[in-house]
Design a protein around this nucleic acid. Sequence first.
DNA 1: CGGGATCCTCGGGGATACTG
DNA 2: CAGTATCCCCGAGGATCCCG
Lengths: 123, 123
Amino acid sequence: MKQLNQEYQCAINMVIEIIGGKWKVLILWNLNEGTKRFNELKRAMPGITQKMLTQQLRELEEHGLVMRTVYEEVPPRVEYTTTDLGKKIQPTLFEMCKWGDLYAEEKGIQMNRCWSSYDFMEE
Amino acid sequence: MKQLNQEYQCAINMVIEIIGGKWKVLILWNLNEGTKRFNELKRAMPGITQKMLTQQLRELEEHGLVMRTVYEEVPPRVEYTTTDLGKKIQPTLFEMCKWGDLYAEEKGIQMNRCWSSYDFMEE
DNA sequence: CGGGATCCTCGGGGATACTG
DNA sequence: CAGTATCCCCGAGGATCCCG
């Protein structure tokens, strides 16, 4: 499927390829709360299509940020959770979010703040 | 030209739109060293086309991360420098870079490390 | 020197229908 | 429930040529 380039002028370009998808950071954020099922994620992200959710999850899995667990039941149950590598990027995402909030404030941009509370990072 | 959406589910998505362009972080990095001329930037980024450099610089300018100064001379001289807002995102970019290096190490990915030395951030 | 104007390609991403 | 499988569109980004 989607492969990373071998040549990067800087690690950041790789990072952007890894988390730059339209929904990736949102997925990571939702999984940060804990393990979730497919439809649970879908409901948490209004506007995302099944195809996109599946695809973005697969790429996150291939890149080792998310783990997928299939339970052999009927009806099927599939759970997603972040790996250690995935958890380690969370502080970075918070940094991005904080700068975004600063930016929005200076530019007078209104937005939903899904990460409005950074409380559990403060400790 | 390129406008930001009004609706974001999270500030991070806005941030990714702002710096997610293929060359944006590279440009910001180069400008982090100080003011540079157009061709100076171009030479510093092998592979970038004139059109892309111009376009990405314009967008960074519109978003208030970069300032463009035109000197009315012959031949023309145009200089680019980061704004306060642009400088404030640098620590965040470093965080991304560090995670990228960690990721590359775990995955055994080789890459040029344009930010291999974080020395001046350590102080 | 520092662009602008055009044309074109390719793949990200949406809509819809089907399935174990 | 958690996906495939198709079809299709649009826009990011490259190549090329022209300009004050």
